[in-house]
Design a protein around this nucleic acid. Structure first.
Lengths: 189, 189
DNA sequence: TTATATTTTTAAACACTGTTCAATAAATAG
DNA sequence: CTATTTATTGAACAGTGTTTAAAAATATAA
């Protein structure tokens, strides 16, 4: 039943987004009453956290493919590309993971741990690059934050429809070529 | 009365954010009934658009100070700093302007025009830099999008409490030093 | 099998939300 | 002083997240 609710919730959540999904929507999707959800979950935010984790597992599984890329800098550049593609293909997961704020303010027990792992991976990757002579004059943590920001910025503008101000370019062109601009800067650093 | 509603709305909006503000909240703030708002505004989204414009006017007025900076690249770097400071000091305006999505999907007549102007300013600034030999091998539009993304990413992570994963650093340290990392990259480009 | 205890599930209720609308009050024009 | 706009209210509608007493289904024990 726990899984059944989660399946219904996932469908509606990813269809309508967090705010526009109601408990009654979820319940009717699986042909149960709304109250039942509160027997299996504490509240809406707990369901959110399950899907939040799910999203990170999905992203991390896609990033895992890059383990075979030997050169850390090449891997770093590819991380961004995978990240952006993930946002394009999973706009709503991305929203839940990086933009929806309400449920993050009161994180579950270890609810944000998987996000922490992802950050640590990025930090390690930066340090590995530094080990090979790249970005040597930079503070690893600030640099990692900057990397995440640059990539997230592209995805966030996309997810919140702020790409409309760049006419004559599709979202895909903007994101991919915009990121390659950033990569060009990285290569010179 | 139009202004009176807007004043009440601004207070509650910037206090509680878009989603958490109710028409009844706004009405009781100015000691009127909820219905009156619908006599002066079409709906909640119309109020949003007024504040959205207001936010852009505020940001643009802060950016105007930079007109006295002669060198375009110095001005470009300063734009980011002003942007970030604006987000820190006006978290909720920033949310309305760049993150809240619902009302942007159905923009009012010219409701997004002021945002368009801001983008055009950035684009001109990039081209001015290129005129002085900077970023010559880059496409101006993609480069401007990348710039906005990098800066917005910093602000968006901050506004949505995704800075918590970087321990031992305050938000202010992360944002300022993170941005300076980016500036270092720009200087090498 | 029957009786008891436990676990699920429901339906109704509570206090909220954005929005609409008939009735009313206030202001203005002739 | 009417007649006509204009402004304002309060109740209502359909929706929201959440709680809870009751009922149904299931498991356990005698």
């Amino acid at each position: 039943m726990h899984k059944r609710i989660l399946n219904g919730a996932r469908k509606i959540f990813l269809e309508k987004g967090y705010e526009q999904t109601s408990m009654r929507n979820i319940a009717s999707e699986i042909n149960y009453s709304a109250g039942i959800i509160y027997f299996h979950f504490k509240d809406k935010s707990e369901i959110f956290h399950e899907l939040h984790k799910e999203g990170f597992r999905l992203l991390l599984s896609q990033l895992k493919v890059l383990d075979k890329v030997a050169d850390p800098f090449e891997r770093l550049k590819a991380v961004g590309r995978v990240f952006i593609q993930f946002a394009q293909e999973n706009k709503d997961y991305y929203n839940l993971m990086f933009i929806v704020e309400e449920p993050v303010k009161a994180p579950q027990a270890g609810g944000f741990q998987i996000a922490q792992e992802a950050i640590n991976h990025l930090l390690d990757l930066v340090k590995e690059c530094q080990g090979k002579g790249r970005f040597k004059d930079m503070d690893a943590e600030y640099f990692a934050f900057m990397l995440l920001s640059a990539i997230h910025g592209i995805c966030a503008l996309f997810c919140k429809d702020r790409t409309v101000n760049f006419v004559n370019k599709t979202d895909d062109e903007l994101m991919k070529n915009g990121y390659e601009c950033f990569v060009t800067l990285l290569e010179k650093g």
